[in-house]
Design a protein around this nucleic acid. Sequence first.
DNA 1: TTGTAGGCGTTATCAG
DNA 2: CTGATAACGCCTACAA
Lengths: 319, 319
Amino acid sequence: MATLKEIASEAGVSIRTVRRVLNEDACVKPDKVKMVNKVIADIGYVPNLLARGLRNKNTGIIGIIADNLDLEVHVKKLSAVQCELREKGYGVMLGIASGNPDIEEKLVQEYSHFCDGIIFLLASTDQRVKVIKKITKPYVISDSYIKTVHAVSVDRDSGICEAIIAQHEKYRYISFIAATSNVNDRRKLAFEKCVQAAGVVDYNIIYCGGGDFNSGLLASESIISKKDNLLICYNDRVAAGVLKGLYAAGCNVPDDYGVIGFDNDDFTQYACQSISTITQSVDDLAKKTVKLLEHQIKGYKPKKVLSVNTKFISRETTK
Amino acid sequence: MATLKEIASEAGVSIRTVRRVLNEDACVKPDKVKMVNKVIADIGYVPNLLARGLRNKNTGIIGIIADNLDLEVHVKKLSAVQCELREKGYGVMLGIASGNPDIEEKLVQEYSHFCDGIIFLLASTDQRVKVIKKITKPYVISDSYIKTVHAVSVDRDSGICEAIIAQHEKYRYISFIAATSNVNDRRKLAFEKCVQAAGVVDYNIIYCGGGDFNSGLLASESIISKKDNLLICYNDRVAAGVLKGLYAAGCNVPDDYGVIGFDNDDFTQYACQSISTITQSVDDLAKKTVKLLEHQIKGYKPKKVLSVNTKFISRETTK
DNA sequence: TTGTAGGCGTTATCAG
DNA sequence: CTGATAACGCCTACAA
């Protein structure tokens, strides 16, 4: 916790000389260099990042604002992004906004002095984008399809198409188990697009609400009557609920019902039948997010959206 | 991003007067108060926390150092702690050390200027404690049994005892599926203590290594030969692996084999048989952790260890 | 080759 | 009631 001043007085030189030694300027007398280094080795010196930040107007810290950490895939994104950032030498601040716009705005304000940039780990709504656009610092939204902000979007079409192409001829019907009745839900839209592109006629969308295990369990009740059905679920939790519901009713998976989730959560492999899923490359997302942010930190201005693919992973709940 | 100076000059008063208005000091002329407030409303003022921190020697930020976010229970702890901190008005920095002592030490240094306190969200080894004891800032280790540091410990005995008392008469044998061969593993020690206290004779410990799903799967092989066995697993993931292994071998759970995990991960409820588990109160842990930290921030010095209980939750994998 | 001085923005002491 | 002014620790332009 020693300061430059203390190092300097201890070594009997000026602060400026200590700095020169620290900067490895050649033009310092060797014996002074030795002296200063000895003092630093003795009493230690850790630069005060607050003071440095105040002066330099950058702190080497990136703020991450997340919605919540309830879904495993969000945690994986957070881990990957923070890992990527640390590798590039940035520190990380974390704020969890819990879907509350007030907290989000407070976090943005807090971070605009502390941080060199802000990463939003959340789905962007139009309302959100309005707040975000006022930010003067570099930022990236990590899962957004909106083209007027710096963002990395997740292309769900690719994975859904893969799954439908691989499986639709094996089942008579295809259903999408949606979590919200939002007509603009990206996964639902992608489902409709892919299913139509594949020429499937017998498809429908089931709204189960919530997007958690219980909503899947509930949804399974309305599914059971329709055998030979491929069920593409909003996420892996819903898929787990659907699967358990089917089990409880004595249904045969994957022969009579195929089950596919989203996100490749770890537990998809723990279930007594491992769950097929559509996965996004979290590492790719993290790399692109940080890349986009660094672009801006280095002064690049134009809006830019990068995209990551999704992939279908076939396991025991599909044929 | 306006500064006090700008506000002051815009309002035609001195910086000191702006401060007084901000502090709601009574002794400012009403028309000046109005003027200053108008300017602030117009051009906005967000205090620069770097400058404030430099001056006041406290930033209102708490650093959290976590090992990793691989286990759901760790994420829940992180969420709960950050929530508790934010409620008390603190900001949060997050660092993930990935079990690497070098990263950990770097984080500690980084945080010792930025943060008013540090929370370690990790199991404390003796080696770790050596580093931590050098810290001059307030700190708390969030899962430690070592008495010479500020810490909150998880009392695993209580939950294990509960489980054993509730179940041991229903099975002939009891096994503990351990993740490490470390003789000092807390869960193993607690298991031995509780099992002996309950007067159980036919118990053993199986080392499966890794502590993940696959190690549980592997462990199940050596279990199958011994029917009528209560299996207490290192954590829920191991339990899931054991359960799947038993299923694959056509074993009857819970009639012939009882399965109990640790941590109450969400997926324990998703498995086709919901998994019995021993849970710790994450909220309680978070509250006590933050409480202990605030104690120190307010100047309290003596070492203190708080403790949280664990509880047995019986589900479908036990009788 | 070395040192002085000023400013980043905030806060509080002290003097008008 | 109000306003200079100094200090927190760092960094660098500018002398000497």
